[in-house]
Computed example of a mutant assay.
Amino acid sequence: MPTGGDPHAHFHNTMFNMVVTDDGHVGSLDTKQLRSRVHEFGAYFQAILAQELRKIGIAQTYDANEQATVVSAVPQEISDFFSKGRRNVLKAAQSYASEQGLEWDKLSIERKQKMLSMAGLAARLGKDLDADDHDIWKRQAKELGWVEQSLMGPEIDPGLD
């Protein structure tokens, strides 16, 4: 059975380190000035994302740490199932350690990180490139009893900005 990449439970935004001034000068951002504010920027992004989700009628809540918005219409067990990549990499690394006669809990953090990195690379390289991930996701979701449907509805009261 082919194993496709799973939809992600979170995402990242890319910010290119380049600016162009009105007079055409090309420079870079002073990222040292941004470093101490990364959590502030992330919180602002999450608040705007939640607001935009509510505007298109997608119900949302916040995660347990109140650090990220979560689409509440997707059951937790479905989200957990499609977040298995990290768990599978950990299992593969632990299995490899065991095959080598090593006890995972007694390994140094550096050794664990190296094994996790290699297991992650092996998992990415081992994917069936001919498989249609979307078809795999739909089949897996159906097997779990999740019905594919739009999550959009009427605007949800956005509350406070």
Rank of each mutant, 00 (worst) to 15 (best):
K91S: 08
I56C: 00
T3R: 15
M118I: 12
V89C: 06
I136G: 06
G159D: 10
E143Y: 09
P7Y: 06
A9C: 10
G24V: 00
Q33P: 00
F41E: 03
L90E: 08
G42R: 09
Q60P: 06
L125E: 11
K138W: 05
E77Q: 15
W146I: 01
K112T: 06
L129Y: 11
R37W: 02
S83K: 08
Q33V: 04
A92R: 04
H25S: 11
G57Y: 00
H8D: 14
A64Q: 14
T31A: 03
D23L: 07
W137G: 08
A93Q: 04
H8C: 13
I109W: 10
T31D: 06
K55P: 00
H25D: 08
K142R: 12
F41H: 12
S36F: 04
F81M: 02
F45S: 12
E40L: 09
K55M: 00
E66M: 05
V89P: 06
V19E: 11
G24K: 05
N13F: 12
R37N: 09
S95G: 12
K32Q: 11
V71F: 02
L125D: 03
R86H: 11
D133M: 04
R111P: 02
Q113R: 15
S72T: 12
A43Q: 10
L34W: 12
L29K: 10
A68H: 14
F45Y: 11
S108R: 13
D128M: 04
G126H: 01
F82G: 03
S117R: 14
Q46G: 01
Y62L: 03
Q67I: 08
I58T: 02
D63V: 03
A92F: 05
Q46I: 01
P154W: 03
N17R: 02
M15C: 14
V71S: 07
L116W: 07
V147L: 12
L160V: 13
P75L: 01
I78T: 12
